[in-house]
Amino acid sequence: MSFNIVVCVKQVVDPDTPSAAFNINQDKLSVIPADGIPPVVNGYCENAVEAALKIKDSIPDTTVTVVSIGTNFIMDVIKKPLSMGADKMILVDDPNLESLDPFSTTKILSSVISKISDYDLIICGQHASDWDNAHVPMGISETLNIPCLNSAREIDIKPNEITIKSSIPDGYITLKSSLPALVTVSNEIGEPRYPTLKGIMQASRKTPEKLSFENIDIKISDLSPKMTLVDLALPVSNSKCEILEGEDDADSGKLLALKLRESKII
């Protein structure tokens, strides 16, 4: 059987950027990328690519199409899913996307995906490490009116049917639905595979298909943001740490315990 998977990925500011290098542009209410720290593919999105490639491992006639929308794409970064083994990539690159809200993101992604004929499965990371909106995948499932299966740690595909183990805090729920469907994943689906040399060579020969708003019948005027960002600030640390210092390290440890008891913390 042939199988078509769409994976949504996002290019984000490296979440390991040290706090000290983190700055905010107050006029634009946006984050200024730190000098010399390139963006990355969002962690859970890499897990989503891995989930798709696992299916491709078991169903060889699988096509994995990666879709990303945004602006200022760094090709070496965003093409990583291709080096991992994905077949195709579609990029919607539009300067307007810099300031768009996630509801518009949902609308655009849904529109791109619905133009990919015969998709069987959409896989998304559970949330992105930048704005952590964590509702675009659910939004896509509602917009396309397809089942939404959350937090998959295992995915099993049968003709016209998907079964997942969905992670809950103390175990899992086995969920089943018909296809096409949308699945969200986190790191529990498994470590993203490293690009192989062959994969990197193949990816270097692939050119992502670039689409503009016109190609997907989206007008900026159709996109009405539902929320407005009014304030973006560095967090205020209100904690003043009291350092316990004894005669030696062992003594400090003891003093710490006594202090916690005295402050009724333990």
Binding site: S239, D249, A250, G253, L255
Partner: peptide, 22 residues
């Protein structure tokens, strides 16, 4: 920056005595 109490030291020495005292 986020802790309210702490010890600067080698955990191998701090932790056993902290655990014992707790």
């Amino acid at each position: 920056k986020d802790a309210s109490y702490g010890v600067v030291g080698d955990w191998e020495k701090v932790l056993p005595s902290f655990t014992e005292a707790v």
